[in-house]
């Protein structure tokens, strides 16, 4: 009898929760993305990536591109969004930085590549950028949606004529570039992406400490600090966060491989 009452009360109180969930879905939950939304993200990302490539040329070093693509595709296969095709490239730039563009486009600058000393650091950097794409940091900031969505950027902001659309596309692209080079994704988003690096490194038995060393080195370069501080939290905060995760999971600071041998094989070709 008591059990029957418990079951009855459970059903009675759980029904409003389920109905609320249903209502949320039909009203377009901001966290639900349709195939059309994803296609819009890819289309926007392609345009933004080609703009990026008009600003920074691709590195001519084929070995470099092959290595970054091999590591990138492996990480995309494990932690990436299955519906996206990921593309990776090394671009020529004096800034030591890496960039993630919606739709699966990841760029690493030649100067950042030269700062690395092992594979663990490269894995950390690429996983960080995949983290930004996984969390849809730019997509959410700019509200990029497909044509079927009630929340589409196009339907919520512009009129139907082509010129208005082009204007909006231009504004959105400029805003996207401003996020990459001036405003950044925000400190919380950067730590979220660092968490993706942490879990990728730990799950593949790589040394998290090496990623921390790279972060420390990047922020010690006074010229580069100006660039990084505009868009990222201070190194101290990022390293502190990684150490906190290591302590929580009881992982020793010496844990993990660096794959220096494989790294050297690919890197010697362009260091000389």
């Amino acid at each position: 009898m008591v059990f029957k009452r418990v079951v009855f009360l459970y059903i009675l109180f759980s029904l409003p929760i389920y109905s609320f969930e249903f209502r949320k879905r039909i009203n377009q939950d901001p966290n639900i993305y349709s195939a059309d939304d994803i296609r819009a993200e890819v289309k926007f990302g392609e345009t933004m990536a080609s703009k990026m490539l008009s600003k920074y040329p691709l590195s001519e070093n084929k070995v470099w591109q092959r290595y970054v693509n091999a590591i990138g595709a492996s990480l995309a296969a494990t932690i990436g969004r299955a519906e996206l095709k990921y593309y990776f490239a090394v671009i020529e730039s004096e800034d030591k930085n890496a960039y993630a563009i919606p739709g699966g486009f990841v760029f690493i600058t030649s100067s950042l590549m030269k700062s690395m000393t092992n594979e663990s650091q490269l894995v950390g950097v690429i996983a960080h950028e995949i983290g930004h794409i996984n969390h849809r940091h730019i997509v959410k900031k700019l509200n990029i949606r497909g044509q079927d969505s009630m929340m589409a950027l196009s339907s919520s902001l512009i009129g139907g004529n082509t010129q208005s659309f082009r204007t909006l596309m231009k504004v959105a692209l400029n805003q996207g570039m401003k996020i990459l080079f001036e405003d950044g994704y925000g400190k919380r988003a950067e730590l979220e992406a660092d968490a993706t690096s942490y879990y990728s490194l730990v799950n593949n038995n790589y040394a998290v400490s090496e990623y921390s060393i790279l972060l420390k080195d990047l922020y010690q370069d006074l010229e580069n600090v100006k660039v990084l501080n505009k868009t990222h939290p201070p190194a101290k905060k990022r390293i502190h966060y990684l150490n906190k995760l290591l302590r929580r999971d009881k992982i020793e600071s010496t844990f993990g491989k660096t794959n220096e041998k494989r790294f050297s094989k690919y890197f010697n070709s362009f260091r000389s």
Partner: peptide, 21 residues
């Protein structure tokens, strides 16, 4: 999900935009 391709479907973000400016 399956890999999204832009080859089979034309993406036009402005198609369903409002008709007034």
């Amino acid at each position: 999900g399956k890999k999204v391709s832009l080859l089979n479907k034309k993406v036009d973000l402005s198609k369903k935009a409002r008709k007034r400016a």
